[in-house]
Design a protein around this nucleic acid. Structure first.
Lengths: 233, 233
DNA sequence: ACAAAAGTGTTGCCATTACACCCATGT
DNA sequence: ACATGGGTGTAATGGCAACACTTTTGT
């Protein structure tokens, strides 16, 4: 490549936006910020940042998650969605947005951090209009999550170490956007053998009736997924 | 964004590589070129090109397909795979590769053009070592195609307007990398109702026995896919 | 007493799998 | 005559969907 060509091509900027899904045991939400500077100052956008040529995307997303939610690496599922590349998607110049999504269980710590940063959670199916092409990114992310949830147990990343079957079902209903039969749901989940009773129960003070707590059997899943195992749903 | 920041961030180059799958009615192949200039001169690579800041990715992929295979737009399925973004994937600097794959039916015209351009087809499961991170891209593309073929009738893009059930089955066997039962395959295909007899048959001079030709019912598929219909396999 | 949420089985249906032979034609 | 490839049916199995009541406990 000639120097001339180098000058011609090495003029693009790289950024990443993140569609962050959070589940609090009841509702599934998406994180949004109000933009503080131009362009589109004041508009709602996904969390994101520009990436310098020497910084890896992984590093950038990692930083973004630390800044915005003080996350726990081991409890977070992160995956690239795809690149959004339209020529005029950003008024500053050609900016390629390599978008990601992540799944986290909401904890009081995260809630506090988000509040401090000025972030707002919107319910999964009531995300307002966003600037840039971020509506499109959210739409794409929701479809991806729906597919993933159907075929792999990624949903477990949205729950804590322990959870009730009702919570798990509620999560699946939100993500798939339809109601599921309680008995059939239990059957499927228990038949998969990917869930273990922890022996603990919910706090009797919080609910009418206590219920059993379970955890995800990661080891068993690792073994199965090596064989190309498809989860269910 | 300050001018200083602009200078810092707008220094990345954008390129696209294409994993081109071709089917000739018998075998599924992937297109590869020998690199003519540095870096990695002489090594095998996927077809690809750098993208100027003012050019859209769609435009670039379109040009690439015209250059390499003189393709027919309407008979080609194209989809973005994802962005490959590693910092040191290219020795010239930070180059983000937004990779695509495409499916084409091989015709004598395409074969001739490819030959003229110095391209080489390798069988689906015998692609040799490639330069850059192109091995990784091919691997990713194969997985994507496998999934797509399972759930949507994209496979039909690899066949012509008319095809025999045997050709269709052969394609599915190659893409899914396993053998399928002839009777069960026909049952599934016909039950889907997405295939129509054209009334024509294969040329009796080419085979021992003539066989019926079919075509894909696009209209019916459009209707079904609006309802979130999942194909089969 | 009643409201709220946890937990539990059966049945019918449909999709998937496994499996073997006949027919038409070109050599 | 035989080799090649097209075309056809059935039975067993397993997963999925539809469906209603009892139990516990806080108010």
């Amino acid at each position: 490549m000639t120097d001339e060509e180098k000058e011609k091509y090495f003029q693009v900027a790289l950024c990443s936006s993140l569609v962050l899904f959070g589940f609090d045991g009841e509702d599934l939400k998406i994180l949004v910020y109000k933009k503080l500077n131009e362009p589109f100052k004041g508009a709602l956008v996904l969390p994101g940042k520009y990436i310098a040529p020497t910084v890896s995307n992984d590093q950038a997303i990692h930083e973004l998650l630390i800044e915005k939610i003080a996350y726990d690496e081991h409890q977070t599922y992160i995956e690239q969605l795809k690149a959004f590349t339209k020529v005029f998607r950003n008024p500053l110049g050609r900016v390629v947005n390599v978008a990601y999504y992540a799944l986290v269980k909401l904890t009081p710590q995260i809630e506090a951090k988000v509040k401090a940063q000025g972030g707002v959670w919107f319910p999964y199916d009531r995300v307002p209009d966003l600037a840039f092409d971020h509506n499109e990114i959210v739409k794409y992310a929701k479809e991806r999550v729906k597919r993933r949830v159907k075929r792999r147990p990624v949903g477990f990343n949205l729950l804590g170490d322990e959870f009730t079957i009702a919570q798990l079902q509620s999560l699946y209903e939100k993500a798939l956007n339809r109601e599921l039969d309680k008995r059939n749901f239990r059957k499927k989940i228990f038949n998969s053998n990917l869930i273990i009773e922890t022996g603990n129960t919910t706090d009797p003070k919080q609910h009418r009736k206590v219920s059993k707590l379970y955890r995800f059997d990661e080891e068993k899943y690792e073994k199965l997924s090596l064989k190309g195992y498809d989860f269910l749903f």
